[in-house]
Amino acid sequence: MKHSLLPHPILTPVLALIWLLLVNSLAPGQIFLGLLLGWAIPIFTLRFWPERVYIAKPLTLLRFLAIVLYDILIANIAVAGLILAGTKQTRPAFVRVPLALRSDLGISLLANTVSLTPGTVSAWLSPDRSHLIVHGLQVHDPAALVSEIKTRYEAPIKEVFEPC
C-alpha cells in the first residue's frame, strides 16, 4: 500500500521545490500546494517512471556534482579558447566508450555529463546499450579520454545509482 501511495520519494520534494521556484514565493499555502502537486504528479505519471530511483551515497553524489560543475567551467574556457584559435587547432575524433552502467537513468546521466564537460559530446548510443560513441573536439589520445570518462564520471554514477 505504501508503495502505491508514495511511488517516488525523491521526486516529491523536487517537484515541490520546482513549484516554489516557479511561483517565486515561500508562503505556507504555496509550500502545501507544492507538496500536494509533488505527491499527485508521480502517481498520475507512474507509467512513465517504471524504475524506482535510489540514491545510495549522497556524499559521493555531492562530490560528483562539484567535480562536474568545476569541469563545466574549465571545459568552457578550453572550448572557448579552441573556437577563438580557429579550425586549425582542433583535432576532432570519435571514440567508443564501453558502458558498465545498465539503468536508463545512469546512462542518460552519463551521456548528459559527457556532453556538458571537456570538449566532448555524446553522439550515439548503441542499440544494445553496450557502448556510447563520443565526439571529442580535440583528442590527442583516445584511450586516455575513454579511461578519464570511465573513472571520473562513470564510476561515481555507478556507485550512487547502481550500488549492487
Partner: peptide
Amino acid sequence: RLEDFYSRLHGPTKA
C-alpha cells in the same frame, strides 16, 4: 566558423 557539423555542435551546447 568551425569546420564540420560535429565540431560546431560543441559551441552551442557548452559555451
